[in-house]
Every structure is written in structure tokens, then in C-alpha cells.
């Protein structure tokens, strides 16, 4: 049975079915991320004064990832253009580049996640706060039994808000800080449960990373086993590259919004 316009564009609209389909899908995705961005705005506006973090993320890493995704957007475009003019070798090269960019992005992102994972804020019994990256826990460290010590690379402050607004403080001095379990009131790492900022940071970037992962799988498939179609039906293959490329550009675009919202403000 023939379904019209699966490969050729409909003359009056200039699009084929899958292209219209992906645009609708992306509209749906916009609403998905739109819900998250609105949540971000409301949580930020509703945060207690001084308790919304500034400068918690490494702008250099964020910039690197932004550049990587921008590059991948260009290589996707070039890969599609190569298909259009029938240069399959070039296509393979550019699509491999896209794939590498995606992997690099995920690598940097997981480094950033790990960095938050080993970052602890410790409320001490005397009302001060120890904060920093975990260096080591002594062998007999047990928070419940109150035995042992934990060592952080960080600092001790009297006012918790100092831990939140890092951007306003010049020359923060970090040292090895060792605290006894017996002095600890509460100890928590910078996971999504730590505060609403990290909650929304992890959900937004996590969902975005899932999209990068999904996109990489599709791109990897088209670069690998899926490329057989080039021999049988080059037009349809080119369409597939275009449709997956549209998705990829959307995912890049989401990052273009995420970067300033999370890293720069």
C-alpha cells in the first residue's frame, strides 16, 4: 500500500510526512522543557532571600560544552549537506564528528555531576558550616555512631548564606578541613535533594542529557548499521539525516537556554 509523501515532499507544502512529524514532535518537546523552565522561574522567585546559589557551576566547563554542542550542530548540518550532494565519505566523517562531540559533552557533564556528588555541606553542632569536596573519610567514620573523622578540601564559615553567593566573595581560601563525626549535626552532599536549585539543576540538565543520549543513539545508528539504506534509497536516507538533524539542533538549542540560565545568572 502506498502512503503518499513518505519520501517526496508534498508540492503545495514543501514538506514530507516525517518532516512535518518531527516539527510537531519538537513542538511537543518545547512544551516539555517549557514546563521545566517555568518551574525554574517560580522556584527561583520563591526562594528565601540569600538562599538561591550564585556561582556554583564552573562557567569554563559550561562554555566548553556550549562550544562543543555548537560544533556538533555545524557537523550535523554538513553531514546532511554531504548526503544531499551524494558525497557519502564526507557524510561518514562529519557524522562521526557529531558523535564524538556528543560523547565529549556527556563526558564533561558527568565530570560536573561527579564534582557535585563529592561536595559536602556539613552543619556542625557549634552552629558553623564546613563545606568542600571530600578528601577522605577515616576508616572508622560512622555518622550514626559518632566515631571517626571526615576531611574536606574546603572551608568553615559562620553564615550559611556565604556558601550560597560565591560570586560576591573574592579570594575564597580553601584548605584541608577535618571534622569529627561527634561534632556533626547534619551532613549532605550536593545531590538534587540538597536544595531546590540543585533539584531543578539536576532535573533540567538530566533531562537534557537524556535527550543527548537518545539523539546519539539515533545518530550512531544512522552512522553505523542504518547507513545500508544509502545504497537502496539515498533520498530517504538523506531525509532521515535531516529529521534526526532537526532533533539534534533542537537539543542544542535547549542547551543554549540552559547555559545562561544555570551558569551565568
Amino acid at each position: 500500500m502506498e502512503i503518499p509523501y513518505t519520501i517526496q515532499a508534498r508540492p503545495d507544502t514543501g514538506v514530507y510526512n516525517a518532516k512535518l512529524g518531527i516539527w510537531l514532535f519538537l513542538a511537543s518537546e518545547v512544551m516539555l522543557f517549557g514546563g521545566l523552565f517555568s518551574s525554574y522561574v517560580l522556584l527561583r522567585v520563591g526562594a528565601e532571600p540569600g538562599m538561591w546559589p550564585h556561582g556554583w557551576l564552573d562557567v569554563r566547563l559550561g562554555t566548553a560544552n556550549t562550544i562543543i554542542l555548537a560544533l556538533s550542530a555545524i557537523t550535523t548540518l554538513l553531514a546532511w549537506a554531504a548526503c544531499k550532494v551524494g558525497q557519502f565519505g564526507k557524510f561518514k566523517f562529519f557524522h562521526a564528528c557529531t558523535l564524538l562531540c556528543a560523547l565529549a559533552f556527556l563526558g564533561i557533564k558527568s565530570y560536573e555531576y561527579h564534582d557535585k556528588w563529592i561536595h559536602y555541606e556539613i552543619k556542625l553542632n557549634d552552629g558553623t558550616f564546613a563545606d568542600g569536596h571530600l578528601v577522605e573519610k577515616s576508616e572508622d567514620f560512622d555518622l550514626a555512631k559518632k566515631t571517626g573523622t571526615v576531611t574536606l578540601h574546603g572551608r568553615i564559615v559562620n553564615d550559611e548564606t556565604l556558601l550560597y553567593d560565591l560570586r560576591s566573595q573574592k579570594d575564597i581560601k580553601l584548605d584541608e578541613v577535618t571534622v569529627k563525626a561527634a561534632d556533626i549535626k547534619q551532613m549532605e552532599n550536593y545531590g538534587p535533594w540538597h536544595n531546590t536549585y540543585l533539584a531543578i539543576y539536576f532535573t533540567m540538565t538530566g533531562l537534557h542529557a537524556l535527550h543527548i543520549l537518545g539523539g546519539s543513539i539515533v545518530i550512531g545508528f544512522l552512522w553505523g548499521p542504518g547507513r545500508k539504506m544509502w545504497k537502496t534509497n539515498p533520498t530517504q536516507f538523506t531525509n532521515r539525516i535531516e529529521v534526526s538533524g532537526l532533533f539534534w539542533h533542537f537539543v542544542d538549542l535547549v542547551w543554549i537556554f540552559l547555559f545562561p540560565v544555570l551558569y551565568l545568572t
Binding site: S39, L43, A47, E48, M51, G191, P192, W193, N195, T196, L198, A199, I200, F202, T203
Partner: peptide, 12 residues
């Protein structure tokens, strides 16, 4: 995971 988006106790 007990993360705070909607729960006012967790800042949501």
C-alpha cells in the same frame, strides 16, 4: 529521591 520541587518542607 526526596528532592524539593513541590514540597514546601524541602523548599518547593
Amino acid at each position: 529521591w526526596g528532592i524539593g520541587i513541590f514540597n514546601p518542607k524541602l523548599g518547593g
